[in-house]
Design a protein around this nucleic acid. Structure first.
Lengths: 117, 117
DNA sequence: TGGTTATATTCTCGTCAAGGCATATGTGCC
DNA sequence: GGCACATATGCCTTGACGAGAATATAACCA
């Protein structure tokens, strides 16, 4: 429910992997267990966390429980992201302008925006 | 600076608060300490995590250290989000179409959006 | 009804992160 | 050099989280 739940749910790599699996298509628990290589109880617990965060829904199909992604909370994440995205675009913009300006000039490179891994 | 670092950095509410503070403007540590009500060492440790995740940069200003947001990793988050956002838009779309269709019509039998395997 | 399959929950243990306190490092000032 | 200020780091305790094993629950089948 709370924001915290969403973030902590997605903080775990296994859970992000599960979410990515469910992005392709809904899957029963057994398939998820097999795909992510965890024990069944562990997987079930991770699914519980995701469920509590509202990230997945369950549909019962005989003895199986088919989990599907619910993109709504992810939209909340997107909303959270918005102001930062704006800042990011601005800085890209500024970088572009600077590159433009210094296209033929010798210096002004004190900032290296080394992005990620 | 793996993906994991970024997620775990943002998983903590205090750190998200700090990031939000820095979204407004760069700030020295003292100001952050005061704003988020944590002890100075705790704040400093959170800042370290954010720094390791590449989310903030430091500029030294005499004895002060002014922290500023670096939006680049957040852009990575945005990239991660993309396929989910797509899914979200699709489901909004489908909902819209359904509402359109059933706006005045009698029915359009059980179209349950839960797909199956 | 009993058995089998699929999934969830409980318990326990090890690990890890957060916060507080004390202290180290670094910078400016006299 | 010595002192004051701003910030970082180390140590320690506590609490949360993840993994595994055993067990409980639920649905199907004979």
């Amino acid at each position: 429910m709370s924001d915290a739940t969403l973030w902590t749910a997605l903080a775990d790599p296994h859970r992000r992997a599960i979410v990515a699996l469910l992005l392709e298509r809904p899957r029963p628990v057994g398939e998820i267990v097999e795909a992510c290589g965890l024990s069944q109880p562990s997987t079930s617990k991770h699914l519980r966390v995701l469920r509590d965060a509202g990230l997945v829904r369950v549909r019962q199909d005989a003895q199986r429980r088919v989990y599907a992604l619910d993109p709504a909370p992810i939209a909340a994440l997107d909303t959270w992201l918005t102001p930062y995205r704006k800042l990011w675009n601005e800085s890209l913009d500024a970088l572009g302008r600077r590159l433009d300006r210094t296209a033929g000039e010798p210096s002004d490179p004190p900032e290296d925006p080394t992005p990620k891994d």
